[in-house]
Design a protein around this nucleic acid. Structure first.
Lengths: 354, 354
DNA sequence: TTTAGCACTCTCCATAGCGGAGTGCTAAAC
DNA sequence: GTTTAGCACTCCGCTATGGAGAGTGCTAAA
């Protein structure tokens, strides 16, 4: 008996877990603190409110639920949600209708950019929250071709094309003037030598070979390499993401704390912090969930982030997910994010049949 | 006397105008209905509140002011604001500090895109409202060069470069397969023939010459033209704009009507309607102001839009402006928009020294 | 034409009272 | 011993009330 009690204190017995589950489901449904009376009615356990109250007191001691004030019901805490999504939630299979929407929105298209945008807006419209999709890291893109286009004597527009068909362009300032034909020569040389290399690899090789070319007195090669280095420098590592349906978040957040909401919106524009967060979830396989403060990022205090990485050529290429109130329908959102990631992977994949 | 009275009834006499001006300035400052007492104190006219009340009653009859309820002061109506910005407002010269901010933010840079984004964010940060800048119409861009890059048998990435150094790319599906060298040939042909033409002109000529090439049995030319037509088709007329600081608007709008705010935010994302609005103000020279409903666009009901067109090569290239609450500091905003437009024109201009 | 005076209206705020919902504790019941 | 019933207590939210403040419109006098 003593044993049983001890384990109850540490691990939460099954009945308590079930009650926690029902409580959270209920709270997610109507957003109001759940009282013992309601729980007694809906739990299917045939327990009196008084008993439930005892259990609730235990759960509160364990930090899984809390009550906003003395005489209100209980609401889940972050730890409560954590336990819920980790082991209690019963995922709801995606409705046929929504699945079709996803499939028809993510059929293989040429432009990965459009694909990413579709994914983002699909996520947003299916979940009624904000969807975001990270654009594949430049580092993992494969170089295909480069072009130089003179704008003025020393200003050159560089156009860099990846195997995936993305185009990046930027204007660079040269230290000395080159003739158009020289530039064409450089471009061809670079395209021939580096086509097929990943951007990261290209960067490494460029640096190495530049040294060597200098040593060999191969001026032309050295110059070409220097320009190339300038051209890809900025594009490497400049990840980005696409948000959709931010305004959906205005419906939640209890329209009380405009400030909070504003912070959140601003954070979408500033990007860096969110990229950081997304980066983290690139590492893990499958769906990952950050609840409230867990993200370690202030504006997300009241929000949860459900993410999943997606693959291209069987290696992680990016992350997608949705942002919404902590009190979101995890049972529906998780499958949506999961499947969207898989469909996006597929769409990006078959895109490769070039 | 009778004469004077008659004119007063139609045109609002000078004293009334002055009072309207003071009232609006006051209302803009603290956002609360202005009463006769306050006005009597601040107008500098040495009139008793009672007299002011009479004048107010007149102004109300003329539809220039209104009172939210029986015993509140008056607030300006749309017509009131209109009269204010048209003839009453005394513009406040731009503070040196702000001017410097603008100048240093809009020095001539290579990329017009960056320039546009700077302008937008400068507008937003100087006015504490939302700034927006329309990106030059494709129609007025000048074609410089085109490249075709085969992705797969029938899919080609087209890269289109304008004289201004902007790059547009899109993937097109071909009806039949071409060899890479054919594509290069096409590209050269097109670049040679059309370089220097405006996109609009290019479009016109393409259509015309396609017919002719067909008649001449000049298959190659006809095919090249057809592809080119496909390539530029989407880019023509697809105007766009950049918004910055939307979240500033959350501070106003009296945080009561979340719905209104949401509509507004959504309208920034949907773009089409706003583009329409901006289009309208392209026609006029100088600063233009849309107050509240005047824009004829629902989400802007409670907002004003202050715009000005900017020039490149002494012809109108685009529009910029700010969106904010009707109750905005017009005396400061108007000069800011005006000068930003001028500085942007200059920055874009000298950019042309290629 | 302007002003003073006065009655009137409407908002805003604080106060108080009450019902509802839910809790925690204690003591009895199973 | 776990479960339950009972009870006192707390807190929220709603409504009614009433007074202070601000401002108006009208009338009559200056």
């Amino acid at each position: 008996m003593a044993e049983k009690k001890a384990s109850a204190e540490i691990a939460v017995n099954e009945r308590a877990q079930h009650l926690l589950k029902v409580l959270i489901e209920r709270y997610i449904q109507d957003g109001e603190p759940v009282g013992s009376r309601t729980l007694s009615r809906d739990s299917g356990l045939d327990l009196s409110p008084a008993t439930i109250r005892n259990v609730m007191a235990d759960l509160e001691d364990l930090g899984l639920v809390a009550s906003p004030h003395t005489s209100a019901g209980r609401i889940p805490t972050v730890s409560g949600y954590r336990m819920f999504v980790d082991s209690l939630v019963t995922l709801k299979p995606l409705e046929r209708e929504k699945l079709q929407q996803l499939e028809s929105g993510l059929y293989t298209k040429a432009d990965p950019k459009i694909l990413v945008e579709s994914a983002s807006s699909l996520l947003s419209s299916l979940t009624h929250m904000a969807g975001l999709v990270m654009i594949p890291r430049r580092k993992q893109l494969t170089f295909r071709q480069i072009e130089f286009l003179p704008l003025s004597a020393k200003r050159v527009l560089t156009i860099l094309v990846t195997t995936e068909g993305e185009v990046h362009n930027r204007v660079i300032e040269l230290r000395k003037a080159y003739t158009p034909s020289q530039l064409v020569q450089f471009a061809n040389m670079l395209t021939e030598n580096y086509s097929g290399a990943s951007m990261e690899e290209m960067h490494r090789r460029l640096v190495r070979e530049m040294e060597q070319a200098r040593a060999d007195m191969n001026q032309i090669m050295a110059q070409a390499l220097e320009i190339a280095e300038q051209a890809i420098d900025g594009d490497i590592g400049s990840d980005d993401y696409v948000v959709a349906g931010q305004t959906n978040l205005m419906e939640f957040n209890d329209f009380s704390q405009m400030n909070k909401l504003r912070e959140l919106f601003d954070s979408f524009t500033q990007k860096n912090e969110i990229l950081h967060l997304l980066d983290e979830s690139m590492l893990a396989e499958g769906v990952q969930i950050f609840i409230g403060e867990e993200s370690g990022y202030r504006p997300f205090d009241q929000c949860s982030l459900v993410t999943s990485s997606y693959q291209v050529d069987s290696q992680v290429a990016g992350v997608l997910g949705v942002v919404g109130p902590t009190r979101m329908a995890y049972d529906q959102v998780i499958p949506i994010v999961d499947i969207t990631a898989k469909l996006l992977s597929m769409a990006m994949q078959s895109d490769k049949e070039s």
